[in-house]
Simulated assay, not measured.
Amino acid sequence: MKEHGKLFNTAMVQAFLEGRKNQTRRVVDAHNSLVDGNGISKKRWEAAGFDLANATIDNGPSPAGNPGPYLKATCAEGTTHRIYSRVQPGDRIYVKEAHAFVPEPAYRRSTGIIQTINPDHDYEACVYRENFDRARSFPWRPSMFMPRWAARLVFDVVSVRLEKLKDMSDEDAQAEGFEGDENGDAFLHFWNLWDSVNGKGSWDANPPVWIYDLQPVGINNETVPSHG
């Protein structure tokens, strides 16, 4: 089993905490993919010039017997390659979110404040920006700097799928954590967020995406901060 830290914004952290999110999509790129079974740097990925727009999706297995799904794509040199997900069923994903480090006793008796203790330094604890309903404002650390020990949200990867972004359904959008409005259109809300996170026009580009179906590990209602 491998563990993979993934960045999530405030809205998606809240969706996890409320139990509304059990799926996430990531653009196929060097960070989350293997090429012909091997890792690849961002520089080499960009130099390869994979034609992802015209790549074909194969659910596997490959001719060599490797399980799918994988993306069959040609590169700028004209050779064809199989692109697999780094994340596999049975792996775990932990959520990297905005956070701060505080002395462990600081919120020990505070109702509704979740803190995770550093196992290597038991006087240090991590608190989380999302749902931190106190007046004090910390110099919150960006999600990307969260160490593994501080993660409060951890998920087993149940399955890994591959499809074009626009092939998602409204049910998928709900599994991504979006609630429908009076028109039941969770799909539109996901679309808007995707463009805001990945850049204007990124939805229309319709890239291939890895889809991770998730099952929470050790998460229950008692871990959700109280607003009472």
Score class of each variant (00 low, 15 high):
residue 6 K to G: 00
residue 7 L to M: 11
residue 8 F to V: 00
residue 9 N to L: 06
residue 10 T to E: 07
residue 11 A to Y: 00
residue 15 A to L: 02
residue 16 F to M: 10
residue 16 F to K: 02
residue 19 G to D: 06
residue 22 N to A: 08
residue 25 R to E: 07
residue 28 V to N: 12
residue 35 V to C: 08
residue 38 N to F: 05
residue 38 N to I: 03
residue 39 G to H: 12
residue 40 I to N: 04
residue 40 I to R: 09
residue 42 K to A: 15
residue 42 K to E: 12
residue 43 K to I: 03
residue 46 E to G: 11
residue 50 F to W: 06
residue 52 L to G: 01
residue 54 N to K: 05
residue 56 T to E: 15
residue 58 D to E: 12
residue 60 G to W: 15
residue 61 P to I: 04
residue 63 P to S: 15
residue 64 A to C: 08
residue 64 A to F: 12
residue 65 G to H: 06
residue 66 N to Q: 12
residue 70 Y to L: 03
residue 72 K to A: 11
residue 74 T to S: 13
residue 74 T to G: 11
residue 75 C to K: 11
residue 75 C to M: 10
residue 77 E to G: 04
residue 78 G to E: 06
residue 78 G to T: 04
residue 80 T to D: 11
residue 84 Y to Q: 08
residue 86 R to W: 11
residue 87 V to K: 02
residue 87 V to E: 01
residue 87 V to D: 01
residue 87 V to L: 04
residue 93 I to E: 01
residue 93 I to H: 05
residue 96 K to V: 04
residue 105 P to C: 09
residue 106 A to Y: 12
residue 107 Y to M: 01
residue 108 R to C: 01
residue 109 R to T: 11
residue 110 S to V: 15
residue 110 S to T: 15
residue 114 I to D: 00
residue 114 I to N: 05
residue 117 I to P: 05
residue 117 I to L: 09
residue 118 N to A: 08
residue 119 P to C: 07
residue 123 Y to P: 00
residue 130 E to H: 13
residue 131 N to C: 02
residue 133 D to V: 05
residue 135 A to E: 13
residue 136 R to N: 10
residue 136 R to A: 08
residue 142 P to W: 06
residue 143 S to C: 11
residue 148 R to W: 03
residue 152 R to Q: 09
residue 152 R to F: 13
residue 154 V to W: 15
residue 157 V to D: 01
residue 163 E to T: 05
residue 165 L to W: 10
residue 169 S to E: 06
residue 169 S to G: 09
residue 170 D to H: 11
residue 174 Q to F: 02
residue 176 E to W: 10
residue 177 G to K: 05
residue 178 F to L: 02
residue 178 F to G: 02
residue 179 E to C: 02
residue 180 G to N: 02
residue 180 G to V: 03
residue 181 D to V: 14
residue 182 E to H: 09
residue 184 G to W: 01
residue 187 F to N: 05
residue 194 W to E: 04
residue 194 W to A: 10
residue 194 W to C: 09
residue 195 D to A: 14
residue 195 D to S: 13
residue 197 V to H: 13
residue 199 G to H: 01
residue 199 G to C: 00
residue 200 K to W: 14
residue 204 D to C: 00
residue 205 A to M: 10
residue 206 N to E: 08
residue 208 P to H: 11
residue 208 P to F: 15
residue 208 P to K: 04
residue 211 I to L: 14
residue 220 N to G: 06
residue 223 T to A: 00
residue 224 V to K: 08
residue 224 V to N: 00
residue 225 P to C: 03
